[in-house]
Simulated assay, not measured.
Amino acid sequence: MAGNNDSLLIVDPRTPDNEVSEIEALGFKVVAAECLDFLYEGVKGHPDLQFAPVGETLICHRGISLEKLKELQGHGIECITSFAALALPYPGHVILNASIGGGALIHRTDITDGALLEEAIRQGLRLIDVRQGYGRCSTSFIGNGCFATNDSGVAAALSENGFRVFISPYGDVELEGFDYGFLGGCLSLVVTGSDRLVLVSGNLNEYVMGRELREFIISSGAIPIEVGKGRLKDRGSVLQVFKKRN
């Protein structure tokens, strides 16, 4: 299975080396996000708080270091910085945390950063307004019109807009410093050639609805790839970012 030379994957910098190696073995170039010490300890390196890929454009949080920005641009990534800076308390740190896929942006749009909204509208995405500020954390696009989520309100909105939805209750996902993490943070759609892969941070056999989730992913036409061992872990997802074509 060959990787995609037209993209790179952004991961939490605290992802264990063995898991990064498993991802790289699929043929992908992996780049680490940064640890932002002003955020909660458990999420300070989560890519889905720091970035939002929209087509071939990457919206980066306003406080990204010059070194990291140059690294991404050096790989051929077109970067736009957010209008606002990430900040605590909620919702200041989730302004980029929209779930994007299937031609839609799903988020609490009254808090979505303006740069992300403008780019989404420019690219013709549908804006699906929900009350969940943790849009990407709670909800992952699986591809082929399918999403997986913990949030019943998001699930209802997606269903009303014609998407297939897998929903499971909150809980049974590990996240440091919290009682539990989000399902979306465990699932990451990546595309390589004609293959659609869903990277799963952990073992589906150890998830309360793991068998059902595996079947849903496969029914969508994707291949579940379990990365690491043990219970599912919210790592802020792995973000695939496509290089700008000439």
Rank of each mutant, 00 (worst) to 15 (best):
I223Q: 03
V94D: 02
R231K: 13
N203P: 01
S220P: 03
A155C: 05
A32G: 00
V198T: 14
Y207D: 01
D12V: 05
N144Y: 08
N97V: 12
L116E: 00
G55P: 01
L239R: 00
V20G: 01
P47A: 06
L213M: 14
E24C: 13
D110C: 12
T112I: 11
E176R: 15
I225S: 00
R196I: 15
S21C: 08
S99Y: 09
P169V: 14
V191Q: 14
I59P: 03
I106E: 04
T192C: 15
G177S: 08
T57V: 11
C137I: 10
I64H: 05
S201A: 15
H46E: 01
S65W: 15
D12S: 04
T112P: 03
L88M: 14
R245W: 07
L69M: 13
E41H: 12
G177L: 14
N205S: 15
L86I: 06
E34N: 04
K29D: 05
G184P: 02
A222C: 13
E41M: 09
G42K: 08
E118I: 13
T112K: 02
G124A: 10
D195I: 15
F38Y: 10
Y170R: 12
H107L: 07
H107Y: 04
V191G: 07
R136S: 07
P47H: 06
R164P: 00
T139G: 03
L213H: 04
P224Q: 03
P13Q: 11
E78F: 08
A222Y: 02
Y40E: 00
K243T: 00
